[in-house]
Structure formats: structure tokens, C-alpha cells
Design a binder for these strands. Structure first.
Length: 135
DNA sequence: CTTCTGACA
DNA sequence: TGTCAGCA
């Protein structure tokens, strides 16, 4: 069967700070901004899975690439959606996208193609292209 | 000792 | 964003 080990929340925020190079302040901030969701222990302590750590590294990269938190948030929302059908967006998300001030489609497309494996390009680019025509 | 939230600079 | 307070 699959090994959910990658998804098991096992690291305390301190360990994540060492692994990602991000400050706890920032990690908590990203969570507050809705970029990530973190499981808590009964004592309200945050726990991060190896996958979550990678996700944070990804956010760090995107940020370094010049993307705004809002753009990354939208990107993460895309991934959460089915990459193939990719059409289960909630009205609230749609509105946010329409209102996204820094939506440079070409820039996002480049960032995506250079950062992600071919697999995820299709649906994402289709959506971006559509938004492009629309605009 | 580490983490948490809220708040200030 | 760093850092401090006051808790747990």
C-alpha cells in the first residue's frame, strides 16, 4: 500500500525552521495568510509532515522567484483542485482571482513551467490561457 | 527548554 | 520581520 509517511505530521516548528531556513514567524504568517494549513497536537502545537516541509520550501522558492503571497496562494489552490478536471473552484476563489492585482499570466506561466513537472502544466496553462483571452 | 498568540517597532 | 511578554 502507499506509505503515508510523507504525510504524517511529525516535526515541531523548530525542526521545520532548521530544514526550511524559514523563521517560525514567517511559517506562522503563511499559515495565517491561508497558504498552508497545519495540524495541531492536543496542546495546540503545530506539527509538520515531510510533505508540508517540502511545500514550505516550495513557497520559499516561489517567493524568491518574485511571486506575491496572493499569487502563490492562488497557485496552491489550483494544485489542491483536481489537476485534470480542475473545475471545482468555489465562487469565493473565483472572485479573489478576478481581483488579483498582480496577475501577470505570462510571468506565472513561466514560473510554473520552470518549477513544475510537465504533468501539472496542462490544466493549469489552460486556465491561465483562458484568463489571458478573457483579459 | 520549546511553542503559542498577540502586539510593538 | 524580529522580538518581547505571559502562558501552557
Amino acid at each position: 500500500m502507499d506509505r503515508p509517511s510523507q504525510d504524517l505530521p511529525i516535526y515541531a516548528i523548530g525542526a521545520v525552521e532548521d530544514m526550511t531556513g524559514l523563521s517560525g514567524r514567517r511559517i506562522r504568517y503563511y499559515e495565517k495568510m491561508g497558504l498552508i494549513s497545519t495540524p495541531r497536537t492536543e496542546g495546540n502545537q503545530r506539527l509538520y509532515s515531510p510533505a508540508a516541509v517540502e511545500k514550505l520550501k516550495e513557497i520559499k522558492r516561489l517567493l524568491a522567484a518574485g511571486m506575491k503571497l496572493t499569487g502563490i496562494k492562488a497557485l496552491l489552490a489550483e494544485e489542491k483542485t483536481d489537476g485534470r478536471t480542475g473545475l471545482s473552484l468555489e465562487p469565493a476563489e473565483m472572485e479573489k482571482r478576478e481581483a488579483e492585482p498582480e496577475r501577470d499570466v505570462d510571468f506565472l506561466t513561466n514560473a510554473i513551467t520552470s518549477l513544475y513537472p510537465v504533468k501539472q502544466h496542462g490544466a493549469l496553462q489552460s486556465r491561465l490561457e483562458r484568463g489571458k483571452e478573457k483579459t
